[in-house]
Write a protein that binds this DNA or RNA. Structure first.
Lengths: 229, 229, 229, 229
DNA sequence: CATGAATGAGTCTTCATTCAT
DNA sequence: TATGAATGAAGACTCATTCAT
């Protein structure tokens, strides 16, 4: 479990910085660890049940703490939700920027890597992925204050921007057809989301998993269709 | 739709049996209209808020009737939801079958028409479309009795099956690459859903609507990628 | 069914008084029959489900009329309930008075006959019997206006009075022990009610019915215990 | 009662582990007290209004707590009801077994004591008594799962069984007439219930209370009628 | 008169949030 | 700081009663 890893991290550090100062330090770290624990558990519960059906009780139970404690770390259920979504988006952003900026790869290779990065992100941090792909859904529009929604939007735009840059570069180099780079980006991203969503809904114990295969074929087909010939 | 059929009947009969018969007939029509009103309002509310967050009160208010009235027409919230989903799927099924069965069109043309039909369906019956694309979500799995879920699954499979048939035909005729027709179908369908979902989330008053354009470009690109050269 | 008998009665009478006057007359009779129908059905439903759980819908369905119609004949659910209880009590009263007043029978014989009469009443009109024996239950105290409760109380007292008179007579003739006649009456009546109630709760399809046997043995034992030796 | 046992435990332990332990202990006691408060209030309300007409609101108001709190202690209205009925029956069972098993008393003395025990139980725990005597009513048949109803039935049978044993013993010793012991038991029990019910319904402020007197005379008369002479 | 659609107050139950300990 | 008992505002659903036809 994630929380185990992070809690052992904090334990290591408290060994190094022990002493008079260490008490405050350890407290700070423990608090951070507790916060992370709550975030992880909430993430899992939101994933499994959706925002509406997830209860604070569910989250508290999974984290083996009390309901009240959650409110020491997060203002409300919505705040907790936001606190999951934001760093997840930031995390993804970092990865995508790195790939898009790597000019030693061809645009096509970078497009493939971007898609794979999103897929890895989805596999490794499925909960956060879910939240990201749905943050715009109507049900959340009234959940967060305008400014928070705006933060999420901006980050999302940044993420898509990475793909757009790469595609534009490919077009500029004459490798890809002259199409609107933003439109192409949206095609990739939204088709990706749709494919994952659809394949996930077919995922059942004992049945084979076509997520990766469908995705790869999609990327191949799309790139084939986009490539200048 | 049923109410259309019965309304034409009533017109005929009221010519012969005016008076007494007309009353019963009018009542039947009013009841059907009221039912339709509830379905439409519920559809809109479910669309806007999602099943969990939508309340019967919301629906009643929008329809300008009382909460109790809704229960005169539908057994429960879940029943109401199902009553929206099922006929919408049936409707879509009919259209798709017709297109897929029209052998005078080329496979590619039929694929385009299938996609357009889904898009038209989505435009004309946006609420129902939304419901259809989400019926597999975890939150609904425990909402309906097994048999009702099974009905939805079967209809969905039938719908996808139409596309599969056409693609298989295209491959058989050597027009399309030799890929798994089911995988291709899933790609089309899920990418379609993802594109709509994503573009919808960008839809704001005063901004331009890229749904159709993105979709058309997606179809072009996909078909181009799939075509044998 | 009871309502059939009464409806055929009214039909017979309308044949005799036909003519100009007959229309009003028939209407009056039909109205009475309809009223009786509702009372009988309500009686059965109240018996089966209890006042709280019985619904006007239940009663209307059983009577094969509409809910609204019931309100043409009775002001409210409570009024309907009262309208069942009162005549049932009157009916029982008549029978008991007749038995108690028959001085040609010995007091003991009359006591037996009184008990049998109550048992017959219970068998023949179980619903009404139930209502009578429970009319004082706390749940009904807030159901009726004071004056109606008073009416029921007075009738109940009259009924018990018949038994009291006979017992007093038996004591006066030296046949029974010198005990408070009212106390004896209450013993008989309430034990009777308790026995029926208890035995009824054991009544299940396929099992034998001990109501009559328990009751007879109870009467024997009680009379034996009360008799002067 | 359970809370009594645990309270004596806590007293012992608080001597040894004062402080930290004391807090947990006090909480446990407060929780038990709260639970008991709810049970008592619910008992009174169910008594007064019957299960169907009693509302959780009523109970909460009487206990001066909120509706929600009740659900912290009991799963549902039906569960609350069951939680009253079961221990009440257990309590009664214990007392009756003790009396019936005391062979140093004559059968007649034990029958009197059994009846007095039931009367004491009724006086001390009138609400629970009421619930017990009605648990078979139709309205409850669909309220509890089969297994819970079975538990109640079994306990009730055990209770009656005590009386049956004593009566059978009396018959075996030639002290009582050769009658069916079960029938005699039912007579006693149901007459008892009926007498209490009837007398209760007459109970009004300012009027004298005949419950005890009627009951005593009933027992005398019954025993007199049953005794072999 | 009869109907039955419509109403809305009332019921059980859940759950985010608060607060005394 | 952590707890978890308590709260009360909703929400789904029921049903006695009314009223237009």
């Amino acid at each position: 479990m994630n929380w185990f890893i992070s809690s052992s991290f904090s334990w290591n550090r408290s060994l190094e910085f022990d002493g008079a100062m260490g008490v405050a330090e350890r407290k700070r770290l423990e608090k951070a660890a507790r916060r992370k624990l709550i975030l992880d558990c909430a993430s899992a519960v939101f994933h499994k049940k959706g925002f509406g059906d997830a209860t604070i009780e569910d989250i508290a139970e999974r984290a083996e703490i009390s309901k009240g404690t959650i409110y020491l770390y997060f203002k409300s259920k919505a705040d907790l939700y936001f606190s999951i979504t934001k760093p997840a988006l930031e995390n993804l952003s970092k990865r995508l920027k790195k790939i898009a900026g790597n000019k030693s790869d061809s645009p096509e290779a970078r497009i493939r890597k971007l898609m794979h990065a999103v897929y890895d992100f989805y596999l490794h941090d499925a909960d956060a992925y879910r939240l990201i792909t749905r943050y715009k859904a109507d049900e959340y529009q009234n959940l967060f204050p305008k400014d928070r929604l705006e933060i999420l939007s901006r980050m999302m735009r940044t993420n898509l921007g990475q793909m757009e840059i790469v595609i534009a570069e490919g077009i500029g180099k004459g490798l890809l057809r002259k199409l609107d780079p933003y439109l192409c980006t949206v095609m990739f991203w939204s088709a990706f989301v749709g494919i994952i969503q659809f394949q996930e809904s077919r995922l059942k114990p004992g049945k084979s998993d076509h997520r990766r295969a469908t995705l790869e074929q999609f990327i191949d087909t799309m790139l084939d269709g986009l490539t200048n010939r």
